[in-house]
């Protein structure tokens, strides 16, 4: 393999995995924008999405599209339950109890998964059985291409939905000013529930996309979730563009760092970058203000 091909290979896989981080980060960003909640359970929601696909696809033997759609429906319902039982009771408390509750929820999800599925890693088959193809020395895994296509499609959908539908605009209004949204007759509680449902689905889709690449385990979500956070902060919390660019940046840095600096520290690079961001440029790439009011 030539040097250029190695570079191309790493850039390709970095961007693809970065796309998954971006989806998770988008979910975190949307919830943060509309409720000010930092959802530390997003990673574990991803894990549940992967298990949902595993049950429907591998255990019940449903065809891929049906399993995929059914998993989305199930996870959407789950998102509603999550906001009803974790967010809603704590909605008027300060950020600390809410963060801790989402961490607690994450622990709960991991442990439920452990009880139900055990500690043996589960395997999910890729969307296309035929593996991939090689162009110019770079191997293009079809699952990675699926990830890229789905991520791109979801971000386009996100754009169209938020900018060109009435529901999307109502959700934006809710995120920007809840009191004013109420005064305009927008049912704010419902909009927040939608936001949680949508964000949960985004996380779950991320999980379904990586399920064939990683093994599905109850712990798979925690690193994914933390990296999505890193992406979110690098991109400026609550910023849609930021989530996309932050996610891809994290994916690339991880892939390139592993390839050219030290493979064993693959997981460390995103966090080192984030540390630098937090201490040197806390407002993120696009400059949303970080410092919180007392």
């Amino acid at each position: 393999m030539s040097g250029l091909a190695i570079l191309g290979q790493n850039v390709f896989s970095g961007i693809a995995i970065g796309g998954v981080y971006a989806l998770l980060a988008l979910g975190i960003a949307l919830i943060y924008r509309s409720t000010n909640v930092t959802n530390f359970a997003q990673g574990d929601i991803t894990m549940l999405g992967a298990y949902a696909l595993y049950i429907l696809l591998e255990q019940l033997g449903l065809p891929y599209p049906i399993a995929f759609l059914l998993a989305i429906v199930v996870m959407g319902i789950f998102g509603w339950l999550f906001q009803r039982f974790v967010y809603y009771p704590l909605r008027n408390r300060s950020f600390l109890p809410v963060i801790i509750a989402t961490i607690g929820a994450g622990i709960l999800f991991q442990n439920v998964a452990l009880v139900v599925f055990g500690s043996i890693p589960r395997k999910v088959n890729p969307v296309f059985a035929s593996g991939g193809f090689t162009v110019g020395g770079v191997y293009f895994d079809l699952q990675y291409i699926v990830i890229l296509v789905v991520t791109a499609a979801l971000f386009v959908f996100q754009y169209l939905f938020f900018e060109h539908t009435s529901l999307g605009k109502k959700m934006q209004a809710t995120a920007q000013d809840k009191t004013m949204a109420q005064l305009l007759g927008i049912p704010v509680a419902l909009m927040i529930a939608f936001t949680f449902i949508y964000s949960t689905i985004l996380g779950a889709i991320g999980g379904m996309l990586v399920a064939p690449i990683y093994f599905v385990t109850n712990r798979m979500g925690s690193t994914l979730g933390l990296k999505a956070f890193a992406a979110c902060i690098c991109g400026g919390f609550g910023d849609v563009r930021g989530a996309l660019i932050g996610g891809i940046a994290i994916g690339l840095i991880e892939a390139l760092g592993a390839a050219y600096i030290a493979p064993v520290y693959k997981d460390a690079f995103p966090f080192l970058l984030l540390l630098v961001f937090l201490l040197v440029r806390p407002q993120g790439i696009f400059g949303e203000k970080v410092s919180e009011k007392a």
Binding site: S166, K169, K170, A173, Q176, L184, I186
Partner: peptide
């Protein structure tokens, strides 16, 4: 609503 345009603000005014 700071992140929406003038027109979008007006449209939301009629959302009821």
């Amino acid at each position: 609503l700071p992140g929406l345009t003038v027109r979008e603000n007006l449209e939301l005014g009629a959302s009821v």
